[in-house]
């Protein structure tokens, strides 16, 4: 029995189940921001593993490793082709990208580097440990790219994943509010699009499309270029300021 449960079926089933529950809750509540399917799925999945651990007198970490991880890893692997597929929306907006490519690259490298100072300062302010601080750094990159970068500079990739998930939740819930408060409609559209794409990844792109086609295109561009920028800029920042 225990050996069977350790096969990938368990993790795959739990993942799909909790996500579907999340989707159902999200629909039922007409899109209440805390019931984003991913957030619900993540919390519910952890709760299931905690209960499982309590019932079997084991630790949650052990249950996670033995029973959930084999299946979870299979789903996780598909982030490789999915992340790679972001090249497609970028290519679809190649007309806009060609026009602004230099501005985008400069803005995302410089902006990405500058925002690292901000994140570092906030992390210090709240007294995060070195592992968590390092994990916070690359979160502007999409999760599948941010996790290995975080690991490379000594961060806990699980915390990075959580940060990236929260990015999407925050942008989903607060994009309109933040755009208003920070007057993001009054600045050139390219900037707004890049900001939304970097901060909210796919969710940010969806929000940006609602603002206009230039913003949408720039957000799609940002998802790809900020990942490249983080990959280069974060290790440099970590070398200079983190250790």
């Amino acid at each position: 029995m225990a050996a069977t449960l350790a096969l990938p079926f368990t993790g795959i089933f739990i993942s799909i189940l909790v996500y579907l529950i999340g989707q159902w809750l999200f629909d039922k509540t007409n899109g209440f921001f805390l019931f984003t399917p991913l957030l619900v799925g993540m919390v519910l999945g952890i709760v299931i593993l905690m209960i499982w651990a309590k019932m079997t007198g084991s630790t949650t970490a052990a249950v996670y490793k033995t029973y959930y991880k084999p299946g979870g890893d299979i789903i996780f692997w598909f982030l490789n082709p999915a992340t790679m597929a972001f090249a497609i929306p970028l290519y679809r907006r190649n007309d806009v990208f060609k026009k602004y490519w230099l501005d985008c690259v400069i803005a995302l490298f410089v902006g990405g580097f500058v925002s690292l100072f901000g994140i570092h300062a906030v992390a210090k302010l709240f007294g995060l440990s070195a592992t968590s601080t390092a994990a916070m750094m690359p979160q502007a990159a999409t999760t599948a790219v941010a996790m290995p970068i975080a690991q490379g500079i000594g961060g806990d990739p699980a915390v990075t994943a959580m940060a990236c998930i929260l990015n999407a939740v925050v942008i989903y819930a607060l994009a309109e509010f933040l755009i208003k408060v920070f007057r993001l409609k009054q600045i050139p559209k390219v900037g707004t699009g890049l900001g939304l794409g970097s901060a909210g990844h796919t969710v940010g792109s969806a929000k940006a499309v609602q603002l206009g086609s230039v913003q949408g295109a720039m957000a799609a561009v940002a998802v790809v270029i900020i990942a490249v920028a983080m990959d280069i800029v974060v290790p440099i920042y970590a070398n200079l300021f983190l250790h």
Binding site: I119, Q139, L178, P188, G191, L196
Partner: peptide, 25 residues
């Protein structure tokens, strides 16, 4: 703390990159 910093980091990334982008343009 991790959650708070993640939320604040999102806002930092959004605002900094949007304004740097605007400046570059």
């Amino acid at each position: 703390q991790d959650i708070i910093v993640s939320v604040l980091a999102t806002i930092i990334i959004l605002v900094v990159i949007a304004y740097v982008g605007a400046l570059v343009i």
